[in-house]
C-alpha cells in the first residue's frame, strides 16, 4: 500500500510540467527515502533525476518499494485537473495496475479522485557518480531561462565558459552571434538575486540549447538554479524543490570531432 499526501500539491503539478516534454514515460520509484524518478529523453542525450523526500510529505506511507510506470503527458493531464492550492494524495495498492491521484480543495469542500492506468516500462537505471566540478554557477533561475530563450533565437548551441571574469553564454547562427556575460554579484539585497561563481579551474563546454530551454520549464519550482560544469562530464542543471528535494537535469555536452 502506498499513500503519499502532499499539502503543496502545486509542486507536483510544476514537476510534471517541467519534465513531460523531455521524457515520454518513466518509472516513479517509491521507497522509505521518498518519491523519485530517473529517466532519459528518447535520444539519451539528457537525463532527469527527481527526488521528493518522504519528510516533505504530510503523510508518507510506502509499505514496500514500488515502481510505477507512467506516461508523463497523461499524468500531467490528470494533475492539471488539480487546483493550485489543492492537497494531492497519490495512492496505489501493491501489485495493482493503477494509481489514484486525489485532489482536496483547501477547505475540503471538493474532493476528486483520478485513477490512471500504470504501464510496464523497461527502463535503464544509471549510476550517477559523485563528481568534483570545475565550476559551479548559482544564479536566478529566471535569468538563466531568459538567457537560454534569448540565445535560442540566434543559434542552436550554447557555449558556457567560466573564467575568473564570470560566466559567459555564447551562441552563433546564420544571422550573427551573441555573448552574454554574467559576473559574480553576491552583494545584492536579496540572496535569490545573487550570481555566485565557484571556480576551481576555467571550463568551457558546448550544449544543445533545445535541451537547456526544456530544463528551464522547471523555473517555477525554484528562484535559484545551480549549473555544475566539468569537462568530460554532463552539465548538471539543478532546481531545488522547497524543503523537499530537487530536480536535476543532466545534459551530455557536444564534443568536437
Amino acid at each position: 500500500m502506498l499513500e503519499l499526501r502532499l499539502l503543496q500539491g502545486s509542486l507536483l503539478k510544476k514537476v510534471l510540467e517541467s519534465i513531460k516534454d523531455l521524457v515520454t514515460e518513466a518509472n516513479f520509484d517509491c521507497s522509505a527515502t521518498g518519491f523519485s524518478l530517473q529517466a532519459m529523453d528518447s535520444s539519451h542525450v539528457a537525463l532527469v533525476a527527481l527526488l521528493l523526500r518522504s519528510e516533505g510529505f504530510e503523510h508518507f506511507r510506502c509499505d514496500r518499494n514500488i515502481s510505477m510506470g507512467m506516461k508523463l503527458v497523461n499524468m500531467a493531464m490528470m494533475l492539471k485537473c488539480a487546483g493550485n492550492d489543492d492537497i494531492i494524495t497519490i495512492k496505489a495498492d501493491d501489485g495493482g495496475d493503477t494509481v489514484t491521484f486525489m485532489f482536496e480543495s483547501p477547505n475540503q469542500d471538493k474532493i476528486a479522485d483520478f485513477e490512471m492506468k500504470l504501464m510496464n516500462i523497461d527502463s535503464e537505471h544509471l549510476g550517477i557518480p559523485e563528481a568534483e566540478y570545475q565550476a559551479i554557477v548559482r544564479m536566478p533561475s529566471s535569468e538563466f531561462a531568459r538567457i537560454c530563450k534569448d540565445l535560442s533565437t540566434i543559434g542552436d548551441t550554447v557555449i558556457i565558459s567560466v573564467t575568473k571574469e564570470g560566466v559567459k553564454f555564447s551562441t552563433k547562427g546564420d544571422i550573427g552571434t551573441a555573448n552574454i556575460v554574467c559576473r559574480q554579484n553576491a552583494t545584492v539585497d536579496k540572496p535569490e538575486d545573487a550570481i555566485i561563481i565557484e571556480m576551481k579551474e576555467p571550463v568551457s563546454l558546448t550544449f544543445a540549447l533545445r535541451y537547456m530551454n526544456s530544463f528551464t520549464k522547471a523555473t517555477p519550482l525554484a528562484n535559484i538554479v545551480t549549473i555544475s560544469l566539468s569537462s568530460e562530464l554532463p552539465v548538471v542543471v539543478e532546481y531545488k524543490i522547497a524543503e523537499m528535494g530537487y530536480i536535476r537535469f543532466y545534459l551530455a555536452p557536444k564534443i568536437e570531432e
Binding site: M40, V45, L126, I255, E256
Partner: peptide
C-alpha cells in the same frame, strides 16, 4: 561540427 554526446557514455547502467 561538434557531435552530440550521449548520457550513457558517461553514466553506466546499474
Amino acid at each position: 561540427d561538434a557531435k552530440q554526446g550521449n548520457i550513457m557514455s558517461f553514466f553506466k547502467k546499474v
